[in-house]
Nucleic acid binder design. Structure first.
Lengths: 252, 252
DNA sequence: ATCAAGTATAATGTCAGACATTAATTTAGA
DNA sequence: TCTAAATTAATGTCTGACATTATACTTGAT
């Protein structure tokens, strides 16, 4: 019975893709293929568990080779967005894996994932600040001082201070002596931005925390482990509060 | 001049892959291809910026088709681990890309130190314990209780308790309500094991910490945020101490 | 008529070969 | 010596074929 419903749903989907899948211009990238598919999925209201058209059909409609379609679908598969099955074809995956963030498809689902992403970033930032205040070299101190000055100047000039903020935190992670912190946080932050920038435009998230940054820099330079931990925690808490305010939810 | 050095490095790499790339058994998956390549990369000491052999060469050596090699490399490319270039071939990427949190190779390339890996795991474990003691459901409590019982039984029976330990920590991360913790820690731990098991054989790392685990479980079930944080911190500190003892180094 | 077993089929998975494209390298020329 | 054109070695793409397999269908027995 469930099969019957699924089957008819599939048929409508497959029959009506002509409306939404048009030939791509030449030189189109794998990303374009995914965008076209996203569009088709949305236009047809396909949901989790539904089948996509066969690869060969997609290729024909888009006017590209099957290899290109496969490459694109493989990307989604690796992100956990679709599962492929010999006879059953390619279906939208039962669950969106969290490190798979392809915007057109997942935007609606990802609001609270901003908080989740931040929740992971939080302890890493705090720990990196603690280690930085412990392991910093003279050179690190000079860089941190320069970066925080740069940040405050940018902030007070009313410019877009986020690149400077990014560099400042990068300097702290650098000073921690463990490159993994920088790597991980950078990736997490990139994922965050990918979710965030699109739906809400140009944000000023974290603006209230900027005045705290000189204090953070001082604590690290002074080697004050507890102070660095405390200030960074406060910064992270304030960022979290702002996220909640923006997306208007309360639960993690 | 830099070109010359790079070129000669490439040549040695390409010439010596015969040592490290052996034919795969049939039915091998794309993951196997990547594992074989990882192995080759490590065996030849390739680092960021170095070239991989041409796809067709890899395919020949592994006894598979070029399509399969391409699919595997595409996965890495999508994760930002490699960049491909028409004539220049495929190179290990200079920077890890954003939406991909694929740690195993990253860590292998970047972290020669177990301590660094552990240093990243530490704050994540502590935070997940804290969140678990805050967000746990009744169901989580039951699972945690069952897992810790299982762990202690396995430990006292003198068996290999590590799978049970793994499941216990997994239950805590589950209880935190944020699946990202589980994902990240699991990957970090996988990377750790990949580095660790090989050189030191069958370890009993963390054995001294097992008796602390019931206490940790109790704190979480009781909702004692401070207690959970404290115990998990102690566990992590002890693991770190044991790592230091094993590898006999002092520096992070 | 219902259920089980076997068969057919339609989709993905893989391979091979060819050609297109591009960027590094080499060569020719000013 | 420097610049520009030709070469070339790699990835990128297309096509067609075959392998594999999970589903869908058919057949047979109870």
């Amino acid at each position: 019975m469930k099969n019957v419903a699924a089957k008819s749903a599939n048929r409508t989907a497959v029959n009506s893709i002509g409306d939404a899948l048009e030939a791509l211009p030449s030189g189109s990238t794998s990303r374009d293929v995914l965008d076209a598919l996203s569009h088709m999925i949305e236009a047809n209201g396909l949901t989790v568990g539904d089948r996509l058209p066969p690869e060969i059909e997609i290729a024909r409609r888009l006017g590209i080779g099957r290899a290109k379609v496969r490459e694109a679908l493989t990307a989604w598969q690796n992100m956990g967005l679709v599962v492929r099955n010999k006879k059953a074809g390619t279906r939208l995956a039962a669950e969106m894996s969290s490190n798979a963030i392809h915007l057109p498809l997942t935007l609606k689902l990802e609001a609270e994932s901003l908080l989740r992403t931040h929740a992971v970033r939080r302890p890493l930032e705090i720990e990196s600040a603690r280690l930085a205040s412990r392991n910093r070299t003279d050179r690190d101190c000079r860089i941190i001082a320069a970066r925080v000055a740069e940040l405050m100047a940018s902030f007070e000039a009313g410019e877009d201070w986020r690149p400077a903020d990014h560099r400042f935190h990068g300097a702290i992670q650098e000073a921690s002596g463990n490159p993994l912190f920088n790597q991980l946080i950078q990736q997490i932050q990139a994922a965050f931005n990918e979710i965030y920038e699109a739906p809400f435009g140009q944000p000023h998230l974290g603006e209230n925390t900027i005045p705290l940054h000189p204090e953070l820099a001082e604590a690290i330079v002074a080697g004050d482990e507890g102070g660095a931990t405390r200030v960074m925690s406060r910064i992270m808490d304030m960022v979290e509060a702002e996220i909640r305010k923006v997306i208007g939810t309360a639960d993690v």
